[in-house]
């Protein structure tokens, strides 16, 4: 007798919100980056949103729900081999899927790191560009453009893989990423980790939000601005030249 698989929560709300907001923010970054010019300020805003999302997710991957944790889905070679042979019986990201997740995130981070130090040779200097010389900042613009192709290819592979699972392996990964729920057979149900208790969940959420805020603040150049009291503006002390 095979019991009807029960619908279980495998992705928590923060993980799902992270994913779909990331998709939206990256699309906005793509469009505003390509248009550039007058839109470059929006490109900075959407880029900083991506910074916040990644900052949140990195923290959530350490303190968040079990299926969202890096330690849960980044597994050793043995687990990867077992997965390859079709013997994986866990929930959440599979061992190979887990690698894909990290690769995608690294590609996004590379995009951010090059963007934050570059300039547009028109009137925009990214928040951290003062830390590097102009030649480096210019070279990073080139890399920012090149890396975007890499990100686009990886994203396409990501979507192709998900469609492959849906059509060929008859495993719908998309619905769980939207609703959080998936029907699990008893064996997998047993592997489902316990959800966090409410206090721990709230604490983890606050901590991750704090991480997002701090990282975004640093990326916006927060550490670079000298306190106004200790360093008065040059204009206010030096008179303007008459010419």
């Amino acid at each position: 007798m095979s019991a009807t698989p029960a619908s279980q929560r495998i992705w928590d709300l923060p993980t799902r919100l992270f994913h779909w907001l990331l998709v939206v923010a990256l699309l906005a970054s793509f469009v505003s980056g390509e248009v550039g010019g007058a839109w470059i300020d929006w490109h900075l805003r959407s880029g900083l949103l991506v910074v916040a999302l990644i900052g949140f997710r990195l923290a959530w991957g350490i303190v968040g729900s079990a299926t969202a944790r890096f330690a849960q889905f980044l597994r050793g070679p043995a687990a990867i081999r077992a997965h390859w042979r079709g013997q994986w019986r866990g929930v959440g990201h599979s061992p190979i899927g887990g690698i894909a997740v990290v690769v995608l995130m690294l590609a996004v981070i590379a995009q951010l790191l090059t963007g934050l130090y570059t300039n547009d040779d028109i009137s925009f200097d990214a928040p951290l560009s003062v830390l590097v010389d102009k030649n480096t900042s210019d070279a990073l613009r080139l890399w920012h453009g090149r890396l975007f192709y890499l990100l686009a290819v990886l994203t396409a592979l990501h979507v192709v893989a998900i469609v492959y699972y849906l059509r060929v392996k008859r495993d719908d990964l998309i619905t769980p990423m939207l609703t959080g729920r998936k029907r699990l057979d008893p064996e997998r149900s047993a592997a489902l980790p316990q959800p966090l208790t409410t206090p721990r969940y709230v604490a983890a959420l606050l901590l991750s939000l704090l991480a997002a805020v701090v990282i975004t603040w640093i990326a916006s150049g927060g550490l670079l601005n000298p306190a106004p009291a200790s360093a008065p503006m040059i204009e206010s002390t030096t008179p303007k030249p008459a010419w």
């Binding site: 010019g37 007058a38 547009d120 040779d121 028109i122 009137s123 210019d138 613009r141 453009g145």
Partner: peptide, 20 residues
């Protein structure tokens, strides 16, 4: 208007200024 002007800089750079 400054935004519009910058868009014309960008348009020409996209076409005729090498990225590096």
């Amino acid at each position: 208007q400054f935004g519009k002007l910058n868009q014309t800089c960008k348009a020409c750079h996209d076409e005729y200024k090498a990225k590096d």
